[in-house]
Amino acid sequence: MAATPETVHWRGVHHLALITSDMDATVRFWHGVLDARLVATLAVPAFKHYFFEIGAGSTIAFFEYTDQELDSFAKPAGVPYAKAAQFDHLSLHLPDEDALVRMRDRLKAHGCEVTDVIDHGFLRSIYFSDPNGIALEASWWALDATGRPADHTDERLFADPDPVPAVRELRDTGRLAHTVSTRLVDGVIEDLRREGITLDR
């Protein structure tokens, strides 16, 4: 499938919404330890929703639900866990190796466990967790794959020796043979119906 002439003008992640059972501890970690400024808050009777800046226009946001018991778990990055079927970890972008080392040292100074710098080839990372048990990573591009045309034959960046069919299509023809469709989850459909909105399915 050919790309359309009117490309999508991405500007990064507006916000990634996560869940906390302790917003106070979350503010103290994200704003205080990670220096991700708390830039906005909102609250309704059902929840608080706080936003932490991680770059121009980009935030990590947390929900704290009112009077709602939630199961919690903690898992390290890259380790499968049945309860985390759709989310593994979040990596925050840093500009260079010095910034990565400074973040590692900052975490240690606040008594947080953190790995040493791991060299993944085209990126380098450290790994740690937030007070909610969310697996976090901070990374910088040793070989920046973004902001330039992708070369799907460049083995420094496309290192899977047996890529999925879609990647083979991109490598061989520069385009996808087809895309996939998705559906809204049933809860969204039910919410829309309550508002008198119906969708063709």
Score class of each variant (00 low, 15 high):
E190S: 05
E155S: 05
G187T: 13
R37M: 11
R28D: 14
L107E: 12
L170N: 01
G32M: 04
P163Q: 14
E113C: 05
V13T: 06
D162F: 15
H110F: 10
R156D: 07
H120N: 15
H120P: 13
L90G: 02
H9Y: 11
L157H: 05
T146H: 09
G111A: 10
V8P: 05
D88Y: 00
L34I: 06
R183P: 12
F62M: 10
L42D: 04
F63S: 07
A61Q: 11
Y65L: 08
H120V: 10
L70Q: 15
F73A: 07
P131G: 10
G187Y: 08
M23F: 09
G147P: 14
D67T: 09
L100E: 12
V39S: 06
P5A: 12
V180L: 06
G78H: 02
L143A: 07
W141F: 15
R37N: 13
D35P: 00
S129D: 13
V79Y: 11
G57T: 04
P5I: 12
K83L: 12
A135D: 01
V188P: 03
L123H: 02
D119L: 08
A145D: 04
S72K: 10
E137V: 03
W30Y: 08
H178P: 01
A77D: 01
E6C: 09
D160M: 07
T179D: 05
I134K: 01
F158D: 09
M23D: 04
D71N: 08
T20F: 03
I60R: 05
D160C: 09
L34S: 04
D22K: 00
L192S: 12
L192W: 12
